[in-house]
Design a protein around this nucleic acid. Sequence first.
DNA 1: GTGGTCTAGACCACG
DNA 2: GTGGTCTAGACCACT
Lengths: 126, 126, 126, 126
Amino acid sequence: MISIDYRDRRPIYEQIIQKLEDLALLGLLKPDEQLPSVRQLAAELSINPNTIQRAYFELERRGVIYAVKGRGNFISDNGEEVRKQRVLELYTDLEALCERAHKLGISKEELLERCTVLFDQNRGGE
Amino acid sequence: MISIDYRDRRPIYEQIIQKLEDLALLGLLKPDEQLPSVRQLAAELSINPNTIQRAYFELERRGVIYAVKGRGNFISDNGEEVRKQRVLELYTDLEALCERAHKLGISKEELLERCTVLFDQNRGGE
Amino acid sequence: MISIDYRDRRPIYEQIIQKLEDLALLGLLKPDEQLPSVRQLAAELSINPNTIQRAYFELERRGVIYAVKGRGNFISDNGEEVRKQRVLELYTDLEALCERAHKLGISKEELLERCTVLFDQNRGGE
Amino acid sequence: MISIDYRDRRPIYEQIIQKLEDLALLGLLKPDEQLPSVRQLAAELSINPNTIQRAYFELERRGVIYAVKGRGNFISDNGEEVRKQRVLELYTDLEALCERAHKLGISKEELLERCTVLFDQNRGGE
DNA sequence: GTGGTCTAGACCACG
DNA sequence: GTGGTCTAGACCACT
C-alpha cells in the first residue's frame, strides 16, 4: 500500500503523510476505513514505530484521519476540506513558479502554452 | 545588496546563492563585475566567512561566477547558458505541478486562469 | 578501505572523493551499500568530520551516493550514468593531451606505441 | 605576445611560465633573444611585477631562460632539453590517463582508436 | 546514533 | 589584501 523511497531527500514521516493523504484524497481510502496499526505498518515498512506515530499525529492534526483510543486510526470524512487545502498549497507553489518564470524572462504566452501541453500530456498518460 | 531572512527555513548559504544568481540572471550584475570579498560580505551580513565561501563555491560550480585566487570573485559571462538551464528546471517543476493539479481535479481552464492572474500580479509587483 | 596521502598536493576531501568514486565505479561498493558514517570515517582517518562531510556532499551532487538524514550515506545505483560522464571527461583530457603531443613533435605512431605499453603495464599491475 | 586568462584556475605566474616556455619550444623565441623586462611586461599585462619576477625565476630554474644582471633576461639555447622534459611530463600524464581508462573499462583498442582520431583531427586543425 | 548547517579561528598560496 | 582548505566544536532535524 505504501512504499518508502530512501533516496528521497524528504524525511520518511513526510513521505508517509503524503502517501496516505493522496490515497484519502483519491478516494482509495474511504471515510471511516481503518488504517493499519502503528506497529503493523512499522513492521511492514521495516522502520521505527515512532516514525509512523509521528505521521499519524500529523495526519490527525490536519484532519485527514481520526484516532480512537484502544481501537485504531480511521480515515476522516472531510476529504473535501483536505482537498481545498491542497489546492491552496498548489496555488502558492504556482505563484512562486510564476515569479521564477517572470525573472527568467519567460512570457505569459510561453508559460500558458507550456502549461497546456503539459496538462494534456498528463491526461493522455493515464 | 543582499539581505538574510532568518525566518526563512532554507539555509543561509542557499539564500545567498539564490539572491546572487537572481541578480546575475537579471543582468543587474554585469559580466566580470567584482563581487564583494568573502570576508567583506561576511562582515556586512554578520555571518561567518565560511558560509559565504560555501555560497560562492556553489555559484562557481554552477558557472554563475568565477574565482581568481588572490584577487576575488567575478560574475561569469555565460549568463545565457545558465538561464537556459534554469528554464529547463522550471519546466520540469511545472510538469510536476500540472500532475498535482490533475490529481486534485483542477481543470485546465482553472489552472490557466490562475496562472494568468498570478503572472500579471507579478508584473505589477515590480 | 581508504587512506590519505599527506604528500599529495590535492586537498584531502578531493582524495576521498576520488577513492570512493573509484570504488563505486569498479563495483567494489554495491548499490545501496552503506558507507561509513561521517563521524566514523573521520575518526578512522584522524581528520575533521567536516572534511568527510564535504566529500560526501560532493559525491551526492555527482550522483555517486545518496544521503538519508538520520540513517547514513549509501551508494547510488546509477553507476552507469556516472561512468559515461567519466568516459566523456577522459576523452576531453585525451584530446588536450594529443594536442600537446602534436606540439612537441611526437608522431602518432610514437604516441600509440607508448599508449599500448602503458595500458598493458596497467593490466599487469593488478 | 602574452595574454592572461583570469578565468583560468591556475595562478597567473604559472600561465606566464607556460606561455613563454611554449614560445621558446616552438622556436618563436630564438636562443639569446631578449625577453621584455620585468617592469615592462608587468605594465603591459597590468599585473604585479612580483608575479613576473616569480615566473622568470622559475623559467631560469628550468633552464629555459638565463638572467644577466643589469642587462635583462634571455632565452637559453637548450631548447632540446626543455622539450625532452616536456615529453616526459606528457608521458606521465598519459600513464595516469591510461590508468583512468582502465578503471573505466575502456579497452585498449577503443583508446587507441580514439587517440588516432583525435591526433588526426589535430593535424587538420592547423 | 545519523546527516546538515553554522560559527570561530587557523594556515596556506597567490597578488 | 584575496580565495582555498582544514580544525574544533556547536546546534538542529530525523531515526
